[in-house]
Design a protein around this nucleic acid. Structure first.
Length: 713
DNA sequence: ACACATAAT
């Protein structure tokens, strides 16, 4: 490939200057689901190892900051030990006296669990005693006894609904705030509000360098009335360095037209010319990963056959890695390669934050990622491939430096690299806000337009959310939460359309079916993905598929699964993900408890009649309805028109049934769908056959309003 | 032939 940077002896001296990027490295404290931990000095005592962490040298300074300031923004580089140590310093410093608790929030469940376990060991207690954790389905804490509580940001949000002043807590640590997940952003906004009412509540926000100033500015309340007592209301920023190996960054001389191919070529160059160490490639999705893996495996086979190959040359072992991959194949990517082999892991963004692969010395970065966007006009979320941010590519590069100094090859020119955004736009500005708005309203915050966001979402997104909640009858004419419907919808831990489906199923006599549908919609990757077995998967799906659509197919799967004598075997025989099925069962029983608490009789069933459950789905998802285009589905027979958009716009939106749907080859007249994605085209997923009359009957306000005055919807 | 970044209540 012309102009391509070549590593090793061929490296042209005129190539773009390489930058030495200092990144943090330490196996100790990266709490994000590390599977294999290694100790630098396994013989050192626990306390000696704790003292050796970079954060230990800053313990006194930190305690001073927390004492004197309401908010401390801590820039703690990966591996400095902040997540495990700060809560313990606070406890030692007396912040847990008198039944007070220190809360530490994490964006991910595994992180909350594993760090809690680690800290419990360091404190020397059983998990759930002095140190505990709380995530959606597990509350491993002892009220009155637990002094350090790790939880997901979402779990703390739920707690805020019941205890708006967080009276149990003396300090809240928001860890990994720079990731700016939806839950983190909502939590930060609410915490600012809590701090007004509770001057004694201390906040520690952990952030990457680049966002520290904006967090500090957000929490700055020094301009507000100050009685002079208590801590300063001006946040303070403190920084703790990590343990770092250098990562040498290389860029392309010329842009590449095909980053998948470039990634493969670079991996092969590294393999031939560079010293030992595994390779991690970042691409955007399953399709690209499959292509790259196929190309690399082909090359690996050819290298083995090459008669000129030296006897001590390393074999190449290639592993795909993405969240939807079957668990056995995922494990393969984490296992150290066999002796005499070098491992190449071809991954999505999972390997950027959620998991850590030990032994990686070379990172090859496409500098692209799939991103979510929300289109308020269509009320639809979409996914598209977009350039990654500098923050994201730096995080990726850092994955090369965990073991020893590493190298990162960015598949763009340095000039193009400079044009990347500094950080990825926070999720809150790119999302459907219906659930978020409902939750905030349920906390008694009526005037949502005045909510203080770290980054305010676009007004159009907010309006769309309010419209949907109004159409669902969760909000009244004054945009106030309705009772009981709106209040109940906020209590159910589901998106409001699914919540509505559940509540309505009580009246329609199909709660058992609705619970199953709702639970199955919560698990991603119901089917096991095997490379090269797509066709077989389609066949398996067709075994359960029915003409009524995906929801009824889920009911069939659930029934067959429950009847199976050996459920694990049933799952593997049918290419179903057993873990997903188990989780669906778990979610189902939780949802059942929620409904029972709200006074819904939970054992009604519509049996073999699918009309009631399909009507319940229509009652929740009436806004997502589409009809087959005139003349049998348009030119290629597959086109549907969105019902809502058809009246609002002169030209109807084209929608198609997603290839993963049971209805992919069917041509029903009218359908409701639970989600849609835009890739090259717009696809409906989780599709159910409904009747247009049901929509008019179940959501007369919505469809009458649309046809009477198109511009108002 | 067409296809699902990542999390969470």
């Amino acid at each position: 490939m012309a102009g391509f940077w070549r590593p090793g002896a061929d490296a042209p001296s005129t190539s773009a200057p390489s930058t030495l990027l200092t990144l943090d490295v330490d196996a100790d404290a990266d709490a994000t689901g590390t599977l294999i931990q290694f100790e630098k000095n396994p013989k050192a005592s626990l306390s000696a190892r704790r003292r050796a962490l970079p954060i230990a040298a800053h313990a006194d300074e930190l305690m001073y900051c927390v004492e004197k300031h309401q908010t401390t923004v801590i820039v703690g580089h990966t591996g400095c030990g902040k997540t495990t140590q700060i809560p313990q310093y606070l406890r030692d410093g007396g912040w847990c006296g008198g039944g007070a608790t220190v809360a530490v929030t994490q964006p991910r469940r595994v992180a909350a669990q594993t760090v809690a376990q680690r800290v419990a060991e360091e404190v020397g207690c059983v998990i759930g005693d002095t140190v505990g954790y709380a995530i959606r389905f597990e509350d491993v804490c002892t009220p009155g006894k637990t002094e350090i509580k790790f939880c997901t940001d979402g779990a703390l949000l739920r707690e805020l609904a019941e205890d708006p002043l967080l009276t149990k807590y003396s300090v809240v640590i928001v860890d990994e705030a720079h990731e700016r997940t939806l839950a983190t952003d909502v939590l930060l906004g609410l915490l600012k509000k809590v701090q007004r009412a509770r001057r004694d509540l201390r906040l520690i926000v952990s952030s990457a360098t680049i966002q520290a100033e904006s967090f500090a500015a957000f929490f700055d309340a020094s301009g507000e009335d100050d009685d002079g007592d208590g801590p300063s209301r001006k946040p303070i920023i403190m920084s703790v360095e990590g343990r770092a190996h250098g990562v040498l960054i290389h860029y392309l001389d010329e842009p590449t037209g095909d980053y998948v191919l470039s990634a493969v070529e670079t991996a092969l160059e590294v393999h031939r010319n560079e010293g030992p160490g595994d390779i991690l490639i970042f691409l955007t999705g399953e399709g690209e990963i499959d292509d790259a893996v196929n190309l690399l495996e082909e090359e690996a086979r050819e290298m083995k056959r090459d008669p000129r190959r030296s006897h001590d040359a390393l074999d190449l072992v290639v592993c795909p890695l993405y969240a939807g991959l079957n668990p056995a194949a995922q494990l393969e990517a984490f296992r150290p390669p066999r002796r005499g082999a070098r491992k190449v892991v071809v991954a999505t963004n999972v390997a950027e934050t959620s998991v850590t692969i030990e032994g990686v010395v070379y990172v090859i970065d496409s500098c692209f990622a799939k991103q979510k966007a929300f289109d308020p006009e269509r009320g639809m979320e979409s996914l598209f491939v977009a350039p990654a941010s500098k923050a994201s590519t730096n995080q990726r590069a850092g994955r090369a430096g965990r073991v020893r100094p590493g190298k990162c090859f960015r598949l763009c020119t340095e000039i193009d690299y400079r044009s990347l955004a500094d950080v990825t736009a926070p999720e809150i500005v790119r999302s459907d806000l219906a659930s978020t708005v409902l939750q905030i309203k349920a906390m008694g915050i009526d005037n949502i337009m005045n909510f203080e966001w770290v980054s305010p979402p676009p007004a159009a997104n907010m309006i769309k959310a309010l419209e949907l909640l109004y159409a669902l009858r969760a909000l009244d004419d004054d945009a106030k939460l309705t009772s009981p419907l709106g209040v109940h919808l906020a209590e159910i831990p589901l998106e409001p359309q699914l919540g509505k489906m559940l509540l309505v199923s009580g009246e329609m006599g199909c709660v058992r079916e609705a619970l199953t549908v709702a639970a199955y919609m919560q698990v991603q990757s119901l089917w096991v993905t095997h490379r090269g077995q797509k066709k077989r998967l389609d066949e398996m799906r067709d075994r359960f598929a029915v003409e009524e659509g995906d929801a009824v197919m889920m009911l069939n799967i659930h029934d067959a699964y429950c009847d199976a004598r050996n459920q694990a075997k049933f799952a593997s025989n049918n290419m179903l993900n057993h873990r997903a099925l188990l989780r669906a069962g778990d979610v189902r029983s939780q949802l059942k408890k929620h409904l029972a608490r709200l006074g819904v009789v939970t054992n009604s069933s519509c049996g073999d009649d699918t009309v009631p459950i399909r009507r319940a789905i229509a009652a929740g998802f009436f806004a997502n309805a589409a009809t087959l285009a005139p003349y049998g589905g348009g030119p290629d027979g597959s086109v549907f028109h969105s019902l809502r958009a058809m009246s609002a716009r002169a030209r109807a939106r084209e929608l198609r049934i997603h290839p993963s749907s049971a209805l992919f080859r069917s041509r029903p007249q009218c359908v409701a769908y639970c989600s849609a994605v835009r890739t090259d085209r717009e696809y409906m997923r989780d599709v159910t056959v409904v009747e247009a009359d049901w929509l008019r009957e179940l959501a007369p306000h919505f469809y009458r309003a649309v046809s009477a005055n198109p511009t108002t919807q």
